[in-house]
């Protein structure tokens, strides 16, 4: 039930995105780095939103809301 895969996957994407941003920043491609960062965060948010929806649905059924 504990969804640790999601946290590990998100952290992996986060590492890749953060390192890509740092490298692109070093080679004076900051605008490309910002694009990568925003895209990465959007992908991560898409993954998190599904779990948040699952949490909301479970809370709604559990507490008769």
């Amino acid at each position: 039930m504990v969804n640790i895969d999601l946290i590990l996957r998100l952290a992996g994407i986060g590492f890749v995105v953060a390192i890509a941003y740092e490298i692109l920043d070093r080679v004076n491609r900051k605008e490309l780095g910002n694009l990568v960062a925003v895209g990465g965060v959007a992908v991560m948010l898409l993954m998190v939103v599904q779990v948040i929806g699952q949490l909301f649905k479970t809370v709604l059924t559990l507490f008769h809301l």
Partner: peptide, 20 residues
Amino acid sequence: FQQRSVAMVVRVAAAVVLLL
């Protein structure tokens, strides 16, 4: 890292997973 938003998303995910 410089990107605060990445850590923020992971923080939200951890909180939601634990609450679930």
